[in-house]
Amino acid sequence: MANERYTEDHEWVRISGDIATCGISDYAQEQLGDVVYVELPEIGRIVSAKDEIAVVESVKAASDIYAPVSGEVVAINDAVEEDPETVNRDALGKGWLFKIKLTDAGEADELMDEASYEDFVQGLDE
C-alpha cells in the first residue's frame, strides 16, 4: 500500500517495473457520486501525460480522465466497463482503469505522494 502517486486532477498511478496502473482517487469517486459509465482508451494507444484518455460519468456529470504519465496503453479494466460501481466501491483496487507502459520511468516521481495529495485535497475542501 501507499506507493501510489497522485495528480492534481485526482488520478492515481502505481508503478510496477515499467507498467503504471492508473485510476481515480477515492476523493474523486466520492465527489462524482454514483458512477454509471466508464469509457476506456483503446489498447495500443500512445499517450502523453495530460492527454484526455478516458471518461468517467455519473448521472449529472462527465469527467475527462487525463493520462497521469506518458507511454502506451497496454491494458484496460473491462470489469469497470461492465460494472461501473466498482469505481465507487474500490477506486484504488479493483476499480483501476488502465495500464500504461512507461516511456520515461522517472515521470511519476514528479507526482504527489499520498501525504501531499491528502494535504492538497484538504486545501480544496476549505
Binding site: 459509465y37 460519468e57 455519473s58 448521472v59 449529472k60 456529470a61 462527465a62 475527462d64
Partner: peptide, 12 residues
C-alpha cells in the same frame, strides 16, 4: 444518458 447532451457535456 444525459451526459451525451449539451447541457452537461457542452462542447463535447
Amino acid at each position: 444518458l444525459s451526459t451525451r447532451e449539451q447541457h452537461i457535456r457542452r462542447e463535447k
